[in-house]
Simulated scan of single mutants.
Amino acid sequence: MTELVIAMALFVGSHFLMSHPLRAPMVGALGEKGFLGVYSLVSLALLIWAALAYGGAPDQQLWFVYFWVVIAGHVLMLLASILYVGSVLKPNPALVGAQGSLAKISEPQGAMRITRHPMMWSFALWAIAHIAMNGTFSTLVFAGGIGFLALAGARAQDAKKARLIGAAWTAYAAKTSFWPRLRWPGLTPVIAGTVLYAVLVAAHPYVFGVTTRLWEFIL
């Protein structure tokens, strides 16, 4: 468990360090593309380490997982899948390097009508669903770290984009919400997100070695 805690702390901490205080000197030394390459490699390596540590961590059960918790978790995963797909189907100024899309839109479109950070919220909903449906301390550390990074990173991203882009971002942010709102994202992200959710459920036992427990309550 100690290894998992250390790996997740480094994974989360490295994101904030490289995204903020270390970004300028790293870009100066490596260039923008070089910085993104190192950032991606470091993040991927630490995530793989954390995932391996999670797989080997002892399962300390924190609560009993009731039927309704599993169902609620699957609902959250469906919503997360729709938000994730929707985050790339329409212009999304919140994505890295996508601030140029601000000039192409007058109003938020698709999933950006729900929240200006649909991809980050998809990770957060994934984390909440998995913590609830597993109920283990190791999942709380692993998924909780990813969920915290997603939402704290989105907040920090708001401040950074407001500082770097200025009025264009401020005007866009005023038309959107950080917190998800009940809005219709369009038929395409709903259909595509539902397909993604179905694929994840079907592939889960083959990729991760455990079922999502959905069939236990349907069959």
Rank of each mutant, 00 (worst) to 15 (best):
V210A: 05
A24R: 15
L83N: 03
S87K: 05
R163W: 06
A94W: 04
A159K: 13
A132D: 02
R213V: 13
G153I: 11
V88A: 13
K90M: 10
H117K: 10
A167D: 14
H74L: 13
S87L: 07
A162L: 10
Y39V: 03
L196V: 15
A7K: 03
G186I: 08
A127M: 06
A7W: 01
P91K: 09
A94F: 08
S101C: 08
Y206T: 11
L41A: 15
V75L: 15
Y197P: 01
S101Q: 09
E3S: 13
L95Q: 11
Y197A: 03
T139F: 09
A192H: 06
R113E: 05
G166F: 11
G73T: 07
V27R: 03
S87I: 09
V199C: 01
G56M: 10
V69P: 00
S177P: 03
V65G: 10
G100E: 08
A174F: 10
Q109T: 07
A80Q: 02
L22D: 08
F142G: 01
A24I: 13
F16Y: 14
L44N: 06
Y197K: 01
A171M: 02
M119S: 04
L125G: 02
L95H: 11
P108K: 08
P58G: 13
M120A: 14
P108G: 08
Q61Y: 08
I105W: 12
G145M: 04
A173K: 07
F67W: 13
T115A: 10
